[in-house]
Design a protein around this nucleic acid. Structure first.
Lengths: 224, 224
DNA sequence: ACCTGAACACCGTTCAAGT
DNA sequence: ACCTGAACACCGTTCAAGT
C-alpha cells in the first residue's frame, strides 16, 4: 500500500477546468514554483507538452486562473455606496487570501482581463451615487483597486513560503513575536507601536484603512 | 571585431557591490527571468556557483538589491507632515519605477528589512505631529505603505515585458489606446471614464490618491 | 483534436577539489 | 576566502510523429 504513487486519476482527456483545478491546488500546496507546467501535467496524468493543447503557454494558465478567481467575486447588496464598496473589498480579500499564491498573478495581470473589467465597472457604478464628479469617481475607483490589491499583497507577502495561510489570529501572533525584536534605541516610534503593528494584516486594519480612504473620497465629493 | 563576446570585464574577484550592480542591470534590461544566478555570474566573469561565496542563495541577492534601493530613499525636508509624506512617497515611486523589475521583490520582502524599518520609522515620525493618536498613527503609516506599494505595483505591472519603463506620457498614450476598445454596451461607466483612466498610471493620479488618503487621516485626527 | 517521445536551452543548488 | 568542474534535479517550450 506504500506504492500508490500516481492516483488512479483521470484516464481520459482532462478538462480545461480540471487543469486549472490542479494548478490552483499545486499553487496552494507548494507556492508559485510548484505550479509548473510539468507538475500540472503529472498531476492530471498527462505528459508535459500535452498541456499546450489547452493553453498556449504558462502565463495563459495563470491568466485563466486569475479570471476564475475574480469571476467568483460578488459585489454586495444593500446599503449605501460605502457599504457596497466595503462588501466588494471584503469579498475580494477573502477569496484572494484563501489562495495566497495567486495574488502576485492578479497584480501582474494589471486588472485588465474581462473579469477585472467587470469588477471595475461595479466600483464605478457604486461611486456614481457618491456625489463625486465623474472624473473623481474614476480616480476613486482606481484608488480603491490600488488599496485592495496593495493591502492583500502585503498581507500574503509575509507568509513563510507557500501553502495556505494560517488563521488570522495565528498570523497576528507571529507578527507580534517578529516585531518584538525591534531595537527601541534605533526605532523608538516603531517599538512603541508594536502592539498595533501586529494587527496590520488583520481584517480590522483592512477595514480601517478602507474607511479612511472612503472618508477622503467623501470629503472630495462634498467639496464639489 | 564581431567576436568581442565577453567584455574584457573584471578579471579579479568581483565585489558584492559589483554583483548587485550587474543583477540590477540584468533586471532592468531583461526582466526578472534575466537576473538569474547563472547570468549574473557570466556577466561578472565568474562560474555560476562562485556567486554562492557572496550570497547564500538567489533570494539573498534579491533582498540585498531591495535594501540598496530602499536605502537610497531620502525623506523630505521642509513643510508640514503632509508635505513630508508626499515627498517621501514621491521619492519611493521615482526610485522604484526606475527599476520596474524590483517592485515585486520589494513587495515580496514585506517591508521587513532594515531599510524598510528605517522608512517606516520616518513615516511614524511624520505622523506623530499629525494629531493622530499613536494607534491611529501606526495604522496610518501602514495604510501609506499599502498605498505607495500598491500604486507602484499596478503602475509597473502593465509594462509590455521587461526593460526600463518608457516615459510617463508614452505609457499614458498606450493605455488610452488599450482602453479605447472597451465595449460601451457592456461597460458603460468604464467606457465613459476612458479619458481619466488613461492617466491612472501617472504622477497626477498618484498624488491625487495620496491626498485623498491624507484627507481621510486628517479627518480621523480631528475627530480624536 | 489530442496525445506521445525526444530534445533544446535553460534554471538553482550542491559537492569535492583546488589555490 | 574564493574559485573551478561536474553533477543533480528541475524548468518552459518546440518539433515530429502518431491516433
Amino acid at each position: 500500500m506504500a506504492e500508490s504513487r500516481r492516483k488512479p486519476g483521470p484516464r481520459r482527456p482532462p478538462t480545461e477546468r480540471e487543469i486549472l483545478d490542479v494548478a490552483l491546488a499545486l499553487l496552494d500546496a507548494g507556492g508559485p514554483a510548484a505550479a509548473s507546467i510539468r507538475r500540472i501535467a503529472a498531476a492530471v496524468g498527462v505528459v508535459p507538452n500535452a498541456v499546450y493543447t489547452y493553453f498556449p503557454d504558462r502565463s495563459a494558465v495563470e491568466r485563466a486562473l486569475v479570471e476564475r478567481l475574480l469571476g467568483a467575486v460578488k459585489g454586495g447588496g444593500e446599503g449605501g455606496w460605502r457599504a457596497g464598496v466595503e462588501a466588494l473589498a471584503l469579498d475580494v480579500r477573502r477569496r484572494l487570501v484563501a489562495h495566497p499564491g495567486t495574488v502576485p498573478l492578479v497584480i501582474g495581470d494589471s486588472m485588465e482581463g474581462p473579469e477585472a473589467r467587470r469588477l471595475r465597472e461595479c466600483v464605478l457604478e457604486l461611486l456614481a451615487v457618491s456625489g463625486l464628479d465623474p472624473a473623481s469617481a474614476a480616480r476613486g475607483a482606481y484608488l480603491l483597486v490600488v488599496y485592495v490589491l496593495g493591502a492583500i499583497a502585503l498581507e500574503v507577502a509575509g507568509v513563510p513560503h507557500p501553502g495556505a495561510l494560517p488563521p488570522e489570529a495565528q498570523r497576528i501572533e507571529a507578527r507580534r513575536a517578529a516585531f518584538a525584536g525591534v531595537p527601541a534605541k534605533a526605532f523608538p516610534r516603531t517599538a512603541a507601536a508594536v502592539g498595533v503593528m501586529a494587527t496590520w494584516i488583520g481584517t480590522e486594519q483592512y477595514l480601517w484603512g478602507l474607511r479612511r480612504l472612503l472618508d477622503g473620497l467623501e470629503a472630495e465629493a462634498k467639496l464639489h
